[in-house]
Design a protein around this nucleic acid. Structure first.
Lengths: 252, 252
DNA sequence: CGCACTCTTGACCGAGATCAACATTCGTGG
DNA sequence: CCACGAATGTTGATCTCGGTCAAGAGTGCG
């Protein structure tokens, strides 16, 4: 299913336009950049921690995650990346990334050379602005995660992650109902929530048993959205996914 | 001690130059912007969660923190901000911030109008680039915190926070040895680490007893830097505080 | 000088970790 | 198409780190 048609930047372009108000010219220029594509198997690295590759990744299809490791090898997942995300914008400015990026499901990934992207940003400040905005949005999500891990107990933590994931799929135009792809393993989920696999398993069962979610074969459906939001203490404001008339503030 | 001389943007300018390679012209232009100053008492808000103030804060003196609250009022501190930091760059693009900013110690704060800063960024893309870079750096710190809270136990967690804070003070040119201002209350520390006050107290005592730190009257000294780094599992790479010949990648 | 905040200590409790099987699913090659 | 092995998911028993509660000791500010 990932082989044809060859993926392109459309998910990214849609995203930059819908969420960050990137105008036509910027999109056209971006679409014209040379794009090096690759298929990455689930679990493999897309960007290695501390790598110095001279290029930026774009997730074209599939789901990825950013992560960091402790010295003794425990992993914390920092963020999930959907199609259209650019997980390592940091490299554009610093040359290196402090965090690795791994494929959660099988991914089709595009790579843009830093040089090319940098000079495009120079010519097209609206693009730079949109990418800066994207960086800020990733920061907001990170803050929500830190609150989640630091101050919510396990059930709320999982519920919140689920709400966020469904909401982000919706905001990116990747789903229209309360369901989405959720190709995670329970052990991946554990690394994302700062919990153990065993406990994650128990919490999932609780959410299933009580009728909040259905999750089978990589597909997640929220069966009680209001209820789940409630136990998750979820307020989607931080996603800045203003639906309706779309008027993001901008660096004009 | 905070009354005279009137603080100015020098901490921010130094920071943008040292850490993000902002050239003279950008600094001069920034210094020329009208700056509205205010004194904020410890514990008070500098930026309210969800506020829509039309301006950006700059910490001129003192220490602040970004935070988010759960629905039932528990607080997670997301980041500490030192003199020279801009804690709510998000507002420049989104108009709102999802996180509040509070003064940890008494702070002198400057406010820059969004309009003015936006049009300056337009005229001076190097400034926009430096601020984008600053956003990315804040993201890296946030990732380190999430790893810390999600995957390290209490002692390492506190040790890591201390290492980071000292290292950041040093990188910003606010200290030259292994000591720095640390005007925190144990309950603030608890909110930063995702722990309870009682437990934080015990962990502090442990670090003191075992000779890693001395902390009295708002001043912290690391008495065993190597040792502390070790139990903290601290690797300062993520701070991108390349000392020595300073050559940040840049959007030229 | 007294009240409020911060720090400290002790006793107890509980959410979640760890350990250890066992069950199920799935991809792979025969 | 089946068989097998490796991931993944499930369950139970036990342990522990850190939370909660409660009380006292400093400390500092008005």
């Amino acid at each position: 299913m990932l082989t044809d048609p060859p993926a392109d930047l459309s998910a990214l372009l849609t995203r930059l336009e819908r969420l960050h108000g990137l105008p036509r010219e910027g999109r056209a220029a971006l679409a014209g950049l040379p794009l090096h594509e690759a298929d990455i198997a689930a679990g493999d690295d897309i960007v290695r921690e501390g790598g110095r590759t001279g290029r930026c990744a774009v997730i074209l299809e599939g789901m990825a995650c950013g992560y960091r490791l402790t010295g003794d090898g425990r992993r914390q997942i920092l963020c999930f990346h959907l199609a259209g995300d650019m997980p390592d914008l940091q490299g554009l400015h610093f040359g290196t990334t402090d965090a690795g990026v791994a494929a959660v499901s099988r991914c089709r990934v595009g790579f843009l050379a830093h040089d090319a992207l940098r000079s495009l940003c120079e010519r097209e400040p609206r693009l730079a602005s949109a990418l800066w905005r994207e960086t800020l949005l990733q920061g907001a999500i990170l803050r929500a995660w830190l609150l989640n891990v630091g101050r919510r107990e396990a059930v709320g933590r999982l519920a919140h992650l689920i709400c966020e994931t469904v909401a982000r799929h919706a905001a990116a135009g990747l789903t229209t109902d309360r369901s989405c792809d959720f190709p995670l393993t329970q052990s991946v989920l554990a690394d994302a929530l700062g919990l153990s696999v065993v406990h994650v398993n128990r919490v999932i069962q609780k959410l299933r048993r009580e009728g909040f979610i259905a999750w089978r074969g990589g597909r997640l459906t929220v069966t009680d959205w209001e209820g789940l939001q409630l136990i998750a203490d979820f307020d989607p404001a931080y996603l800045h996914a203003h639906r309706g008339p779309h008027r993001p503030e901008r660096l004009p």
